[in-house]
């Protein structure tokens, strides 16, 4: 029994640590290098965007570029699109997934397969097809800014679907539903008071992902001639690179913030295709 109480010798720890250091130096170096390279464009766009040669820190490039434009409108457009696409996705997918998990789990393989199709089709191909199809099928449809919403929903579908599906799988919906019903709850009560609160994490995760993607989407909006924030950025960038750099910096930061919130809420890992390019 006496052996348990033996005090550890502090000096021994040092050796143990240096032993494994060989491989770890290489790993730390790789990660450090990656960090520097990742950050360089970010730092550069801040430095480039918020300075003027010989003047130091300055908001002038950005102010000049924004003066006389209706950036507010474009920002609002993007914000509206982000909110509407997110709501649209949730309204479409949450009931669908809940229904399928409860009543027809054998169909989930099929819908999962469906949800991956947008993965395969590049945004630019989707725009081309949409342009062709809706110009003939419903000529007025593409005029409205809001016509972008369904396409954004399509583009974000793989990520949003996965996030929600993983969330539902993690709560064992059937048991939860049965337990709630056995206590006398009506279906809508179960939905509002039991299921949705338990899905909060994955709902939030799906929303953040969706917003982050809409924030950066360019191809669809530009080619369907709608004016969103990324489209505005490209216009600015044509002749005011400093202002564009400043806007890029802000965009990247906001994206980071959204995704950082996402990982904080420990939503399921996203293995995704890249964002809209």
């Amino acid at each position: 029994m006496a052996a348990i109480e033996k005090l550890p010798l502090v000096s021994d720890g040092v050796k143990a640590r240096t032993q494994v250091a060989g491989g770890d130096v290489v790993r730390t170096a790789i990660i450090g290098l990656a960090l520097v390279l990742f950050f360089l464009p970010l730092v550069a766009s801040a430095a480039f965007g918020f300075t003027l040669p010989g003047q130091g820190i300055s908001f002038e490039p950005l102010r000049d570029a924004l003066a006389g434009t209706d950036i507010a409108t474009q920002l609002m457009n993007t914000a509206k699109l982000a909110v509407l696409s997110t709501i649209g996705s949730l309204v479409l997918l949450v009931p669908t997934l809940l229904f399928l998990h409860l009543k027809a789990p054998n169909l989930l393989r099929f819908t999962e397969w469906l949800s991956v199709i947008p993965y395969v089709v590049p945004a630019i191909a989707l725009v081309a097809g949409a342009n062709l199809f809706f110009r003939q099928a419903a000529p007025g449809f593409m005029v409205s800014l809001y016509s972008l919403v369904p396409f954004y929903m399509v583009l974000t579908l793989p990520l949003v679907y996965r996030s929600l599906d993983a969330g539902i799988r993690s709560i064992d919906l059937r048991t939860l539903w049965a337990a709630s019903e056995s206590l006398g709850a009506k279906p809508w009560q179960t939905l509002w008071q039991v299921v949705l609160p338990n899905l909060r994490g994955s709902l939030l995760g799906a929303s953040l992902l969706s917003c982050a993607m809409v924030l950066g989407e360019y191809a669809v909006a530009a080619l369907l001639l709608h004016s969103t924030f990324p489209v505005f950025m490209v216009q600015v960038g044509m002749n005011q690179p400093r202002a564009a750099a400043a806007l890029s910096f802000i965009t990247i930061l906001v994206t980071w913030l959204l995704l950082a919130l996402l990982s904080r809420d420990s939503a399921p890992k996203t293995t995704s295709k890249g964002g809209p390019r």
Binding site: K6, L9, D12
Partner: peptide, 12 residues
């Protein structure tokens, strides 16, 4: 044989 991990003596 003596072996420690981070100051904690595991084999004494």
């Amino acid at each position: 044989i003596t072996k420690s991990y981070g100051g904690k003596r595991v084999l004494d």
